Amino acid sequence: MNILIIGASGYLGRALTLKLHTKDNTLYLLGRDKNKTYEVFKRILSSFVPFPKILDYKDELPDADIVINLAGESIAAKILTKKRIKTLESSRLDVLAHIENKLKKYSCKSRILLQASALGIYEDNSSNIGNDELALICKTVEDKALSLNNIFSRIVALRLGIILGKESPFIQKINKIPPIKFIGKEKHIGWISIEDTVNAII
């Protein structure tokens, strides 16, 4: 199976690549820096399986069976100002526009898109879609992903909570992470283990 992982050098991307790096799959890893992506994986991948094909945004994208898009600026990296919220949204929309531009040349087939989203799309303690900034970012990104139905036969939004594990950035930076507040409203933080996340995607 041909699988394209975008944002592969992140925490979830690394774990997913390790699990999918088998003789039955051909992996393509897309990141902003080919050298950085290569350095991340050359130390951790088995030499008994062909090394993934490393791509950057100047390269053509493969006609993959599955595209797993995990790319986007980290929400927890900096204080959440209005300017930063715009950056978070545009970093995700720009990647989806790139996918659309690069894959539209291929004929339509049974191709799947798994698009990273977040539990922040919901109202706190509710299954209703929220209307604060984080929810609006998620909804905007999901709507853009769903609009790519001329390229993908199935599109899945991965509404994930904080992903926890021994090397989780959240665990490493927990004392530095700014409060998750949007216009004065507190958000509870849902979580999932890295193992369960990888297994759910697979």
Rank of each mutant, 00 (worst) to 15 (best):
P169I: 04
V198M: 09
G31I: 04
L20I: 04
K23V: 00
I85V: 14
S117Q: 12
I171T: 10
N128V: 08
T81N: 05
E167T: 14
L103S: 04
S110D: 15
I151G: 00
M1C: 01
K109T: 03
Y57R: 05
G130E: 12
V40C: 01
L55T: 00
N101L: 09
N150Q: 14
N69G: 11
H98W: 05
I174A: 13
T26C: 00
Q115I: 12
P62M: 10
L20E: 03
T37P: 04
I129D: 06
H98Y: 06
H188S: 14
T37R: 08
A200I: 07
P52T: 05
A76F: 14
L70H: 13
V40E: 02
F170M: 12
G10Y: 00
L103D: 02
F152R: 06
G31K: 00
H21A: 02
K185D: 07
S90P: 00
I137L: 01
G130K: 08
G31D: 02
E100Y: 09
S9P: 08
T17R: 12
S107L: 13
V95A: 01
K42V: 11
L164A: 00
S147R: 09
F182S: 15
G120M: 09
L114K: 13
E60C: 07
F41R: 09
D196K: 02
I171A: 11
E133C: 05
K42I: 13
D24K: 08
L18P: 00
H188Y: 13
C138L: 07
F51I: 00
